[in-house]
C-alpha cells in the first residue's frame, strides 16, 4: 500500500487535507504554485462570523504540518497511473510517486478590470474587496482620511453572463456586509451604501451580520446593480444604479467604491484538468460526478477534490471538505 499522497495547493483546503492525512499516518507532499502557503487567506484580515484572524488560522495549520514537504513555485506537468498509484512529474523535473491525489487548487479572484464600467484600475477611488482587506490587514486604513461616503458593489463578476460567470460566488454578500461594518467601526460618521441584487445571507450567523449592519451600524442597503461609475472633477466616484424598490434611477457621489470581486475558476484548472484527465464543468470549476453524496470524488479513482476547486465555498466548508477528502483517500488506500 502506497502511503504517499500528493496535495495540489497550499491554501486552506490543501493545508487542512494534508494535516488530516498526516494525522491518519500518510506522508504528504504539497505542491504550491506561488512562493508561500495560505492561498487567498494570507491576504485576508478577518473572517466572519466571529472576526477570526485569517493569518492565525493559516499559521496554526502550517505549524501543525511541521515536517511536511511543501514545494513552492511548483506546478504539475505530467501525470500517469502506475501499479501503485500515480507518478506525477512536476515543474522542477522531479517525479513524485503517490497513492492518491487531492486537488485543492482553489479559485481565482475575478479580475475587476474586466467590468470596465466600474472603473477599477482607472479611477483612484475604486478598489476591490481584496484591496480593502489588504488595507485592514496592513492597518494602512487608519492612516487614510475619512471617506464621507463609501459604496459596496455586490456581484462583481458573479451572476453576470456578460463576463461568462452565471454562478453566485456565495461569500461576497457576507464579505461586503462584514467590510461595511468594519468601515463603520473605523469611521462611525461615514455613510455606507451596499448595492445588491439579492442578499444571500445563507449561513448560520450571517443573517445576524446583516441585522447588525442595519441596526447597529446603520448601513444603507440599496437593491439595484450599479450600472456604471464615473469620476467627477474632484476625483470622486459618481455611481448610477436603479433603486429597484422605488423604481427610480439613483445617483450618488462616493469617496470610495469597493467592488466585491467574486470567485471564479482557478486560471490553472485547465492545465490540471489536462494533466490528470479530469473534466471541468462549463463554469471552469472541476466536475463532480456526485456532488450531493460524494462531493470530494472525481470521476477518476484515486483523485479527490477539496475546497473551492469545485465551486465557490466558505472557509468552513473548505475545511470540512478537506477533512472529508482525507477520509475518502484513507478509505481508498486502505482497500488493498
Amino acid at each position: 500500500m502506497n502511503k504517499n499522497v500528493l496535495v495540489l495547493g497550499a491554501g486552506v483546503a490543501g493545508l487542512q487535507a494534508a494535516l488530516s492525512l498526516k494525522e491518519l499516518g500518510y506522508r504528504v507532499t504539497i505542491l504550491e504554485k506561488s512562493s508561500s502557503a495560505g492561498g487567498h487567506l494570507k491576504d485576508w484580515d478577518k473572517l466572519y462570523p466571529g472576526n477570526i484572524s485569517s493569518s492565525g488560522l493559516i499559521d496554526n495549520l502550517i505549524s501543525a504540518l511541521d515536517g511536511t514537504d511543501i514545494l513552492y513555485n511548483t506546478t504539475v506537468t505530467r501525470s500517469e497511473k502506475s501499479d501503485n498509484g500515480f507518478i506525477t512529474e512536476i515543474s522542477s523535473g522531479e517525479k513524485i510517486d503517490s497513492g492518491a491525489i487531492v486537488i485543492a487548487s482553489g479559485f481565482s479572484l475575478f479580475d475587476a478590470r474586466i467590468k470596465e464600467e466600474y472603473g477599477y484600475g482607472i479611477y483612484r477611488r475604486v478598489i476591490t474587496n481584496a484591496d480593502l482587506e489588504a488595507l485592514f490587514r496592513s492597518k494602512e486604513i487608519h492612516k487614510m482620511e475619512m471617506p464621507a461616503k463609501v459604496g459596496f458593489v455586490h456581484c462583481v463578476g458573479s451572476r453576470d453572463e456578460k463576463v461568462c460567470n452565471r454562478h453566485c460566488s456565495k461569500i461576497c454578500c457576507m464579505t461586503a456586509v462584514k467590510q461595511a461594518c468594519e468601515i463603520k467601526e473605523i469611521w462611525p460618521h461615514a455613510d455606507v451604501y451596499c448595492f445588491y441584487m439579492d442578499l444571500r445571507m445563507f449561513g448560520r450567523g450571517y443573517e445576524d451580520l446583516y441585522y447588525e449592519a442595519q441596526s447597529k451600524f446603520g448601513v444603507n442597503f440599496i437593491r439595484g446593480r450599479v450600472s456604471e461609475a464615473g469620476e467627477d472633477k474632484d476625483g470622486k466616484v459618481v455611481v448610477k444604479a436603479e433603486d429597484t424598490l422605488t423604481s427610480r434611477p439613483l445617483k450618488i457621489t462616493l469617496d470610495l467604491l469597493v467592488l466585491m470581486s467574486g470567485m471564479v475558476r482557478n486560471t490553472d484548472n485547465k492545465t490540471i484538468s489536462d494533466v490528470f484527465g479530469i473534466p471541468t464543468g462549463e463554469d471552469g470549476f472541476f466536475f463532480q460526478p456526485s456532488p450531493l453524496i460524494n462531493p470530494t470524488s472525481s470521476d477518476s479513482s484515486g483523485i479527490y477534490f477539496a475546497g473551492s476547486a469545485t465551486g465557490p465555498k466558505t472557509v468552513a466548508e473548505s475545511i470540512n471538505e478537506a477533512r472529508a477528502a482525507a477520509l475518502a483517500v484513507h478509505k481508498f488506500l486502505s482497500k488493498d
Binding site: Y193, D243, R248, P249, L250, K251, I252, T253
Partner: peptide, 17 residues
C-alpha cells in the same frame, strides 16, 4: 425622477430612527 442621494435629505429618517 432620479434619486440624488447627494442632496437627499434624510433628517426625518434619522430623527425617527
Amino acid at each position: 425622477t432620479r434619486i440624488d442621494l447627494d442632496s437627499a435629505c434624510q433628517s426625518l429618517y434619522n430623527q425617527i430612527a
